[in-house]
């Protein structure tokens, strides 16, 4: 091992002083990633853009139709409904998930470092969306599920959950909160453990309450973690798919037909590849726009701290 690396070192040495060697090494190092990027990100994105101007059902050659798909989606109520539902889903999912994760982290920070407790909290996140969705589909069954059993034994009315157009999207959000709250808590916990303890000690000496300390020490110092959590979870949440595919298939009454589900249905059930590509381009534009705005905001907040 060490012999071969010494040999490698010798091989590289003659070039190492020059700028060309640096460039050469750099490109050698990024080559695999660059190939992956070109083949599976850049090329497909261009190809998707190209497809979005065609009528293509996969079975026959694509037919160029100009902007027809974009005109069609502009008038497609179900497309806009999908966009609206995805946005609504993010609002149902993220605030509660972040809040639960945060409080759970604070609680754990105070009480225990036990690796067992942390493992249990993280466990749902380690299971796949498909599995988690199946488990909850069973527990939330309106007639046989254990959750409705609890509800009715408390004297309340039976709830349809995933079967009701008014509750289905919120229920899907609930299922994903269950899967992700442990993850969020872990990220916050890492942030909490970086906060110097003496800040709290000093605050206590001055007679601050728990809430004041949380409000004025914990929250502001958790800001970078908070930004990270929000950035990653919002983009993921906007693209919710697996859970819906397993539990509601977009129904009832289109109440969970979120944008990604609608696109995939068009592509692989209706075989409308061109139209699906056009919709995915619009979705991509929205996501890029969102990310750019977010980067602006983050940069602003960075300079704030400095």
């Amino acid at each position: 091992m060490s012999e071969s690396s010494r040999w490698l070192a010798a091989l590289w040495r003659p070039f190492s002083q020059t700028r060309r060697a640096e460039t050469f090494t750099a490109y050698a190092l990024i080559l695999p990633a660059l190939i992956g990027f070109s083949l599976f990100y850049a090329l497909p994105t261009i190809r998707a853009l190209e497809l979005s101007f065609t009528d293509w059902n996969m079975m026959r050659p694509p037919k160029f139709i100009g902007f027809d798909n974009y005109v069609k989606l502009w008038h497609d109520g179900r497309f806009w409904n999908g966009m609206k539902l995805s946005l609504y889903y993010v609002l149902l999912n993220i605030p509660l998930q972040t809040a639960i994760g945060l409080f759970l982290a604070v609680a754990m920070d105070r009480l225990t470092r036990s690796i067992f407790v942390r493992s249990v909290v993280l466990l749902p996140y380690l299971l796949s969306n498909v599995l988690v969705a199946l488990i909850w589909l069973w527990m939330l069954d309106p007639l046989l599920g254990v959750v409705n059993h609890l509800i009715t034994s408390l004297g309340l009315d039976r709830q349809a959950f995933l079967g009701s157009p008014n509750q289905a999207l919120a229920t899907v959000a609930g299922i994903n909160i269950w899967r992700h709250m442990g993850l969020v808590a872990m990220l916050f916990l890492a942030g909490l453990q970086n906060i110097p303890r003496n800040l709290y000690e000093a605050a206590m000496v001055e007679g601050a309450t728990e809430w004041q300390m949380f409000r004025h020490i914990t929250l502001p110092l958790l800001r970078p973690v908070m930004v990270f959590v929000l950035v990653t979870s919002v983009t993921g949440s906007f693209q919710i798919f697996d859970t819906i595919a397993v539990t509601t298939a977009g129904g009832p009454q289109d109440s969970t037909n979120v944008i990604v589900y609608y696109i995939i249905t068009n592509a692989f059930s209706f075989n409308k590849m061109g139209y699906a590509s056009a919709m995915s381009m619009v979705l991509a534009a929205v996501m890029v726009l969102y990310t750019l705005i977010q980067m602006r905001v983050m940069r602003a907040s960075d300079s704030d701290l400095a």
Binding site: Y41, P44, R47, L51, M287
Partner: peptide
Amino acid sequence: SMMIPGVVTFIPNFIL
């Protein structure tokens, strides 16, 4: 590339 939703590259990747 992190900003591009997975669903965009999905169809062309399948064809590729």
